[in-house]
Computed example of a mutant assay.
Amino acid sequence: MKKETCGIFIHQIHNVIEKRMNNQLRKQGLTFSQINVLATLASTSEKKLSFKELEKQLALAQSTTAGLISRLEQKRMVSIYGDKDDKRIKYVEITDLGMKCCENAEQDMEETEKELVSCLSEAERKAFFSLLKDVKDTVTKF
């Protein structure tokens, strides 16, 4: 007997969203994970983060983050450079091409999210978002 849990529901929702977004992003030669990196960088004031900070914000392993960054660098969507004072620190910065791709994907992402919560009232959407944020904030402390 399979027990329904929050974790299972979240995983199933994530899989559906990721599949749909990957299908839509394929025309740009990107994946959902890659656009997530670009969107995270685009949302910062300086359009850049250290590798460590990006790993933390994405809640991904160092090796996974490095692979995503490497593929985006090959596509000229990001640039990588070291800190001038501390050579151990590497930064990743979104390029103009990366920004353009991120903007193009934004409409698809908004449409997907709109459909995701279409069964909820406006008040329920706000409460749902707030609750999801609380859970995300909790799990990122682990």
Rank of each mutant, 00 (worst) to 15 (best):
Q62C: 12
A66D: 11
I80W: 00
S70Y: 03
L68T: 02
T64I: 09
A61I: 05
Y81Q: 05
A61S: 08
E53Q: 15
E53K: 09
Y81I: 06
E73T: 06
K52Q: 15
A59E: 15
Q62I: 11
E53C: 07
A61F: 12
A66T: 07
A59T: 12
A66V: 08
E55I: 05
M77V: 10
L68D: 01
S63D: 12
S79N: 15
K56R: 14
A66Y: 04
K75P: 04
I69Q: 01
T64K: 11
S79M: 12
K75I: 07
T64D: 09
K52F: 09
S70H: 05
E73K: 12
I69P: 00
R71T: 04
K75N: 12
T64G: 04
G82N: 14
S79L: 11
E53W: 07
S79A: 15
R71L: 04
Y81D: 07
S79Y: 05
E55G: 04
T65A: 05
Q57L: 15
K52P: 07
A66Q: 11
E73R: 10
T64C: 06
L60N: 06
V78T: 05
R71F: 01
L72I: 02
R71A: 04
G82H: 12
L72C: 05
I80P: 01
M77I: 04
K52Y: 11
L72S: 00
E55N: 14
L60K: 15
A61V: 08
G82I: 13
R76I: 15
L68Q: 03
R76F: 09
K52S: 15
L54N: 03
K56Y: 10
T65W: 00
E55T: 08
V78R: 01
K52W: 11
L60Q: 13
L58Q: 06
K56N: 14
K52L: 12
S70I: 01
Q74E: 09
L68G: 02
V78N: 02
S63Q: 13
T64L: 09
S70P: 01
K75G: 04
K75E: 15
M77A: 11
M77R: 10
G67S: 14
R76V: 08
R71G: 00
L72K: 01
G67W: 01
R71P: 00
A61D: 14
E55W: 03
I69A: 00
Q74P: 07
T64E: 08
E73Y: 10
K75Q: 12
K75F: 04
R71D: 02
K52G: 06
G82Q: 13
A59L: 15
L60T: 07
A59V: 11
G67N: 09
G67A: 14
Q57N: 15
L58N: 05
V78Q: 00
I80H: 01
L60V: 13
E55M: 09
E53A: 08
L54C: 05
S79T: 07
M77T: 07
S63Y: 10
S70V: 03
I80E: 03
L58S: 04
L72F: 02
K56S: 11
